[in-house]
Amino acid sequence: MSEEQQITPWNIDGALGEWYVPLYIENMADEVLCHYNFTTTTRTVMALKNEFGGLIWKLETDDGPKSLKILHRPPVRSLFSIAAQEYLVKKGAKVPEVIKTKQGESFVNKGEKLWFVAEWIDPLWQVSDDLNGAKLLSGAIADFHERSKGFVPPERCVKSSRLKRWPKKYAKIITKMNWFREITELYGEMPASQVIQESLPIFEIQAVNAHEKLLSSPYRKLADRGDKAWGLAHQDYGSSNGQQSSDGMWIIDLDGVAFDLPVRDMRKLIDEYMYNLGYWDLEWVMGMLEAYDEVNPIEDELFEVLLIDMSHPNLFYKHVKEMVYEPEAFLDAEVKAEVERVLQLEETKWAVIAELRKEWKGGKRR
């Protein structure tokens, strides 16, 4: 095996089996582990991002269980997330500790990817799928946000910040609505095409309105406080990345962390729960926000921006955006059902947002 071999995506179509890992990557893992002061007895694949070249193993070692991870992003970006994880550990956040190499480094660069080892928190289990579980997740991410404030990334990495990118992202989604229209017209025979075409006028108007409201909101004033003031958002937070242990809630998989307004994580978490419920529920949403606010208070101007982000057609976009890559494979019956579920949510969403606007004041019901 060449030392200079680059890790590239593998097994894209899954034909080689769900857990297939190329031999050259297994050999790289052996070499990477030689940089550490423990001896590995077993190595088990736990998660794959083979379409990007990412991977997580669970290690059983003579120094307890650990994880070995290949970060799929470019090394200068991956360095940001590793540094963020180390900062959060120092600040007392419940995120896994990064294990140093024999040379005192936080990672190994191999195959043009960063590899790192972290402690494996065991056991971990998902929270209950009721409101109490949702509150636990809300409080945990609030603690994460609060402790992440003040993070300064290393100079040699690419800083990841979405703090001032909201208007651009909103505008991009408006543009993509036209792409979705053209694609579903071109592939009109596909199962999901008709329901997407019929729903596009609804969600396109929502996207335009949300963009206009964002531009006239306190958003820019809040964003101007800067990255250090707000800290990091997880960006992929949900019931799989916030889990319970005997000593409290842990947050894992920090690969995508970026500077951002903290309510972005909460909006995504609320979306996940409302989608799973099949309707918007005021008591659930208010309970989650109150649990968050108890740990990291949500000021009124930030709450206003959260309501705007809730009013944006995020779930619709999430469930249809991949059509631009392989429409013939993507626009199937499963996507049709997902879009129909999002449309069902519309029947209860707006009344809940209206009540939130009336009832919320400084973290308390009026």
Rank of each mutant, 00 (worst) to 15 (best):
Q126F: 15
Q126D: 08
Q126E: 15
Q126I: 09
V127A: 04
V127P: 02
D129G: 09
G133R: 02
G133F: 03
L137M: 06
S138R: 03
S138M: 14
G139P: 14
A140L: 00
D143N: 09
F144N: 00
S148R: 08
G150M: 02
P154I: 03
K159Q: 07
K159A: 11
R162E: 01
R162T: 12
R162Y: 11
K164M: 12
W166H: 14
P167F: 07
P167R: 09
A171S: 12
T175L: 13
T175A: 14
M177S: 15
T184E: 02
E185L: 12
L186S: 11
Y187R: 11
Y187C: 12
V195D: 00
Q197T: 15
E198S: 07
E198M: 04
L200I: 09
L200G: 08
P201H: 06
F203S: 12
E204Q: 12
H211Y: 05
E212H: 10
E212A: 11
L215S: 05
L215V: 00
P218A: 06
Y219K: 05
R220I: 01
D224N: 05
R225L: 15
R225D: 08
A229G: 05
A229P: 07
G231Q: 05
A233F: 00
Q235K: 03
Q235C: 08
D236K: 02
D236P: 02
Y237R: 05
S239C: 06
S240F: 02
N241V: 01
G242M: 03
Q243G: 02
S246N: 06
G248S: 08
W250H: 02
D255F: 03
V257E: 08
A258W: 07
F259T: 10
R264Q: 11
